[in-house]
């Protein structure tokens, strides 16, 4: 009986693991973008499909991490305290009711950097350790705070 209980606890911990990964995440844009910083709420609005424009009125091209990545789960959990299943169902509602287009999922941090470097209106997020000087940070999620 106790083995089953421990297995159950281990299963729950594993299931919640993405929220406990420690990695600082930076939200990045192209250096030519006139936006210098965003508040947490403004990032939430963009990544939850509630705003279709940057605060300065330009239209962003939103990019996302791979659908099964831990970084994606951590990013959304830190922004919204919602689990990835809830986020996936939420975005399915927005997309299929025509309210918003989901951020395009890219394959890796490398591709995210490449796409943001090349597109003036792009916005994405990466693990801070991959940051380079060819993109501009406009928001930082420090998970050790």
């Amino acid at each position: 009986m106790s083995i089953i209980r421990y297995l159950l606890i281990a299963f729950v911990i594993l299931a919640l693991l993405p929220a406990s990964v420690s990695a600082d995440i930076v939200v990045i844009v192209n250096p030519a973008n006139k936006i210098e910083s965003l508040s947490k709420r403004q990032v939430v609005d963009l990544y939850m499909g509630r705003k279709s424009h940057f605060p300065n009125g330009t239209r962003p091209l939103r990019f996302d991490q791979p659908s099964n990545s831990n970084l994606r789960a951590v990013f959304y959990y830190q922004l919204t305290q919602m689990s990835l299943p809830s986020i996936n169902a939420y975005w399915a509602r927005l997309v299929f009711t025509g309210r918003a287009s989901a951020p395009l999922a890219l394959a890796s941090d490398d591709e995210m950097l490449e796409v943001v470097e090349k597109n003036q209106h792009a916005i994405g997020y990466i693990d801070k350790k991959y940051l380079n000087d060819r993109v501009k940070v406009i928001f930082e999620l420090n998970l050790n705070q």
Partner: peptide, 19 residues
């Protein structure tokens, strides 16, 4: 022609993944 917005699921009642 659009989904008729009468209730929570009215614009996605066919979208099982969303509920």
């Amino acid at each position: 022609r659009m989904g008729i917005d009468l209730f929570m699921l009215s614009e996605y009642r066919n979208l099982g993944f969303a509920y």
